[in-house]
Nucleic acid binder design. Sequence first.
DNA 1: CTGTTAGCGCTTTCAT
DNA 2: ATGAAAGCGCTAACAG
Lengths: 341, 341
Amino acid sequence: MVTIKDVAKATGVAPSTVSRVIADNPRISPDTKERVRKAMKELGYHPNINARNLAVSSTKAIGVIMPSSADKALQNPFFPEILRGIGSVTHSMQYSMTLSSGVTEEEIFNEVERMVYGSYVDGIILLYSKLDDRITNFLHEKNFPFVMVGKPYENATEITHVDNDNYTAGKEITDHLIQMGHQNIAFIGGSKELFVTLDREAGYEAALCDAGLDVYDEYRIHTEFLKSGGREAVERLLSLKEMPTGLVVSDDLISLGVLSMLEESGVSVPSDISLVSFNNVYLSEITRPALTTVDIQIHELGAQSAKVLIEQTVDKSVAAKRIIVPHKIIYRNSISEKGAL
Amino acid sequence: MVTIKDVAKATGVAPSTVSRVIADNPRISPDTKERVRKAMKELGYHPNINARNLAVSSTKAIGVIMPSSADKALQNPFFPEILRGIGSVTHSMQYSMTLSSGVTEEEIFNEVERMVYGSYVDGIILLYSKLDDRITNFLHEKNFPFVMVGKPYENATEITHVDNDNYTAGKEITDHLIQMGHQNIAFIGGSKELFVTLDREAGYEAALCDAGLDVYDEYRIHTEFLKSGGREAVERLLSLKEMPTGLVVSDDLISLGVLSMLEESGVSVPSDISLVSFNNVYLSEITRPALTTVDIQIHELGAQSAKVLIEQTVDKSVAAKRIIVPHKIIYRNSISEKGAL
DNA sequence: CTGTTAGCGCTTTCAT
DNA sequence: ATGAAAGCGCTAACAG
């Protein structure tokens, strides 16, 4: 391995000088810089990151933590997409990113501990928000730089987070359904433990209220992702005395399952029932019908979190922030006008 | 930060002893081990990974490189799934994993260079196989430990890789279609640059030949993922004088697009046309109809690569290997019997 | 069984 | 503008 010493020797300067050249220190003469750089190139010198990390006690690396149900969760295109968003900024700032790989909460907690105590990373991005979460609490207590994607359950003013305005998004998309003449609108959401679900549901509710429509408890269904989840939700729906004509589904992936089961049950979308959802993952344009959905700009969510986290790691004194990434409804064809009836 | 010295002082032993306790060195008396461990716990000691890495010049980290078209590619559930597979073993062996984040080939190449020269990682997993690939060549020349998922174009005997038997898989699934009475069978594949496509296509061809069926060039279509790709392929298909009754599609994600376009064109699957594909990603059971597809055990593909890579990094002398992960046809309902006609 | 010592490669005062 | 030297936290001979 070519070290700084080799370069120094080859150039006839001291190691410290070489180090300064690497840092592009202004008080090194252009001439020596030139010579040192030439030698580095010739010898094929590359800095050893561990030595550097050790000396400056910083790593230029950030850790990305997936939710503990990672096996299922990772199936949601949301995650690859947000990873890309994070990657785009870590890459441009020459940071590297380390992914959590644990499955159980316990495993992940241990990984986080190692990351923090072992100086693996300078900061952490949490890809979920959970009530009373051990990892969140740990990071918060230790005062370790981290940002959360989503809304924190506690200490929201002290925890930097980047989120959408899911309440408003839920309201707007439900409004749209109402504008199209629908009055019986049901909500199908993911886990009630997740703030996203709650926020979107609250928006749905508010839209109904504002329009003077009743909110029925049987019209609010909570379920899992994928096929099984879709089945369950659709069965519940079909068993209702009065079938809704509109459906607000809190995640495109759930919509997929719902769509599939609906078709199996002979209910056609959008002619029998209209459906809208959230996220605008790439799948939502391939489904039949293509989904009208809220684009939450997943990539941007990731990019913003990485950006603010890095800011935070370089200057630990900056105050906690909330960053809201704007959303936008994407109109496709999973809705039909109800006015005609 | 609590260091090894603090623990040493607190216990009244030498730092090296503490180090040995960490390594669980057998020649330390159980008694001192006990005391040292107690002190570590009390002081809240955690080893500094960078110092350790520097001292032993190894990192217990592996780099995972995505293909350069990562933006699109990452959308394929194949990637999250293989990441999970990799993660399951890195996690169990206490390794960490660093993801590439570049988009262009140039960017990724630079990342790889940094990983290798900067001692970021002990080994690298390449999640693609490309002809005349700069990164592959670099790694191969440098003799840096790496494994490839898929089949190398060159130096296959010198490059450890883990792959499926895509040829046989293609043959078997095509055979199945033939058994079901189909004679006009087309192939829709992804990029011809990819070995997977080529292998599966070769298997398709072999099955036709073995059955004494003709192989038409117009029956072999190459396309992109997702909607646009599906459209194009289906248009080509519909423009044929003789429409095939069977379709072998080289990737579930492509099937999704094809399915969607087929339905739009009023062609029904499986009654008008039967379709089979590859990968068995979770989507394939949500589509309508659910896909008969070859399960290539993506998770296992990832796990095996991580496993063999780690073996290779600890003992650089082990010979290059080829590991074939078995496949299995998953029967669902995108096929109908053609015999009746 | 344990302590001493010398690095690993880089950065960073402190001199000059 | 540059060099000398100490030190980041840990490991690994080498002694004993």
